[in-house]
Write a protein that binds this DNA or RNA. Structure first.
Lengths: 334, 334
DNA sequence: ATCCGAATGTGGAACGTTCCAAAAGGCGAT
DNA sequence: ATCGCCTTTTGGAACGTTCCACATTCGGAT
């Protein structure tokens, strides 16, 4: 008695064939207005719910986008995930979430599971590490895939990649601190040798080279606690440092929270700039200057591109850089 | 040439029937070891991938859990979502994410979409507002559903609900501040009249009543900026306030970041306690005391309960409170 | 009245699994 | 050899859609 109604029941109720009901369901406009209405009413009356599994089986499009993120606990990625999900939902696609937790083996399992579920497309911010396996699974899945923020390092894949223009961001931050009168500017945080770290740093290094200042670089992690711990070390080792560009906002916020104990006034004695412009920047003390990657636009654009690919077969260009923007706040004395 | 292999292809390759392949896929132990191995090998050889849509259609279990969250941008919920996803993945369930963004209409759409996708279970932290519709959709979907953190307010639903023991948390925080010698303790933040706010506050009120102190309550929002803005107002209106219990960590962190400008030393002049113990608490200045809801355990327990229900039909008890714990850090002078 | 093209509607046959009832195989006891 | 019983395997019928090629209906133009 509790079996869910199917389109057949709807068809019977509305006095049409199941094919017609199917057409209505797909919003096909060959059906006459009055018929459409009758069908819609019948659906409402008997409490019909669409069975996507059946549709997926037949039509090979699931309405599911798989989102694989390397570290979901990082607010930057979270914000992206939340915005992306909303944008996809607006286009009637659901988001299947997977956190690879920076573990390549887990990443493979996550991707495989999503493939089984028949996701129509992937958005992936890959884990660092051995990604041979991930590349091969993705390749054989033959599903539209867009890399964001980071790129799989394995050679020979042809997966489009979009990311903010990190290098330019690094340069903007350095320019700003120079303009504010900083004499010695350090770069703090980020995992050594990783492309994102390299890119952010290289903008900074390029500008310092142009102005003839010697760089101070202290890489390591990308967390608040790293920032907090390393601020002390940085100032001890290089007492003349009066400006610091942090790999990301978490590091920068860590630095800010270390300042009071170090007897340093952030924004005056030490000018701090972060990266990502997460929401917290506005409410820290002092408010944190940061290179904004404009996550809302970025998420919207990622959604648009993957959907164009999935729905209309339009693959995005192989690699693109989205614009960044320096948001000046009190932490850099701006 | 590029069609995905099906179990039929596997069967042919392995020289068995499709039924046998299906049994292997389901890990059924009636098949002989040697056969199982042969089948597994055939699958690997021809690059078979499981088609869950087909399985779902036939068997009515999708291996999907729908997670509906009222505000995914709040780090507290994010952390929960990330941990829950990982725990579900460990049990071979994928997580479909939906942010209702505190919008009841959107919430209904999200739930409906998840129902269409055939999720086997729901975990939902409902939006505030008119939730009649959500309740009725959930009821007619007839899918195991577990409410977390908040409960749908509409009467007459019978959806199990688990949440941390907020009331006890409020009491613990108040007790602690009293012990630390605070004479006037305020409660700050949280949306007026909402059950979560009420619960956290009532623990605080109960303890103040016992000690015969007059409460100071200033509700409103649950954000950093609210905390930052209201700290000033609180101290202006009630100069004798020397302790404050915040609705959540965001509010508390806002208060902390306002302190320097107000010329108040947090942890000495003003003792602050937050709620939720999000990761940021450890790295703020000063580190924030907070009532921990133990999100990792909570997430694990939520996963366990929904899976028990989905897989074995064991419904959880109607309502349960999980333990909370006060984490003492410098912001309360502890 | 009759015809014609456009607009609408339709009945199978897929899609790739799982489930079921029943067949086949294996093996020790008669 | 035959039987019975347990283990293992199997063919066909679902599951609820979409897709396709083909009907049917409609409304002028002849």
């Amino acid at each position: 008695m509790n079996a869910r109604p199917t389109i057949l029941d709807v068809a019977k109720k509305a006095g049409v064939s199941k094919s017609t009901v199917s057409l209505v369901l797909q919003g096909n406009d060959v059906v006459k207005e009055t018929t459409r209405l009758a069908v819609r009413k019948a659906m409402a009356d008997i409490g019909y719910v669409y069975n996507r599994s059946a549709a997926t089986l037949r039509s090979a499009s699931s309405g599911l986008i798989g989102l694989v993120i390397n570290d979901l606990r990082n607010p930057f990625f979270t914000e992206f995930a939340a915005l992306l999900q909303m944008e996809l939902a607006r286009n009637d696609f659901a988001t299947v979430l997977a956190n690879s937790d920076e573990d390549p083996a887990l990443q493979i399992r996550m991707i495989s599971s999503l493939v089984e579920h028949g996701v129509s497309g992937f958005i992936i911010s890959p884990s660092y590490g051995d990604d041979e396996g991930a590349v091969s699974v993705l390749r054989s899945a033959n599903t539209p895939t867009l890399q964001v923020f980071r790129s799989l390092k394995s050679e020979g894949h042809d997966i489009p990649f979009i990311a903010p223009d990190y290098e330019r961001g690094g340069r903007l931050a350095a320019e700003h601190l120079v303009e504010m009168g900083c004499k010695r500017i350090a770069f703090l945080g980020g995992l050594e040798g990783r492309p994102v770290t390299e890119a952010r740093m290289s903008g900074y290094l390029a500008l310092l080279a142009e102005t003839g200042t010697a760089p101070v670089v202290l890489t390591g992690q990308a967390t608040r606690s790293f920032g907090k711990a390393m601020a002390a070390k940085l100032l001890a080792d290089y007492p003349d440092v009066d400006g610091v560009i942090c790999f990301n906002d978490l590091v920068a916020l860590g630095v800010l929270s270390a300042c009071p104990e170090l007897g340093v006034k952030a924004g005056r004695d030490l000018r701090v700039v972060g990266f990502d412009d997460i929401e917290d920047c506005q409410d820290s003390y002092p408010p944190l200057s940061s290179v904004s990657c404009n996550i809302p636009d970025f998420a919207k654009s990622a959604a648009k591109q993957i959907l164009a690919w999935v729905k209309d077969g339009v693959a995005p260009q192989m690699t693109a850089r989205s614009p960044v923007q320096l948001i000046k706040r009190a932490s850099s004395g701006g």
